[in-house]
């Protein structure tokens, strides 16, 4: 799955984009966020901000942790948006 990061999350992790092999057990958005937290100190610190980190799956906002990752090829992680 392609994982993309924006704003201070991108800077903090020092990753703009990566291709990741997710473990078989990662089936929902909740699983994906838990897996991110397990990837080391910086990831744990960033993804501890559960109310701040927003997610888009295949370029659509998703906030249901039970949402399935089936068919998802791109996941993006970002703080609340400040456009306009």
């Amino acid at each position: 799955m392609k994982l993309i990061y924006f704003s201070w999350i991108r800077e903090r992790l020092d990753i703009a984009e990566e291709e990741a092999e997710l473990p078989e057990t990662v089936k929902t958005l909740g699983d994906l966020l838990a897996w991110q937290k397990s990837r080391g100190e910086e990831f744990e610190a960033v993804f501890a901000h559960e109310k701040v980190v927003r997610v888009a799956l295949n370029q659509e906002h998703v906030d249901d942790l039970a949402a399935s990752l089936e068919g998802v090829t791109e996941a993006a992680f970002f703080p609340p948006m400040t456009g306009g």
Binding site: F6, S7, A56, A76, F78, P79, M81, T82, G83, G84
Partner: peptide
Amino acid sequence: LKTRAPFW
């Protein structure tokens, strides 16, 4: 647009 468009 302010709350949903992905701009930072």
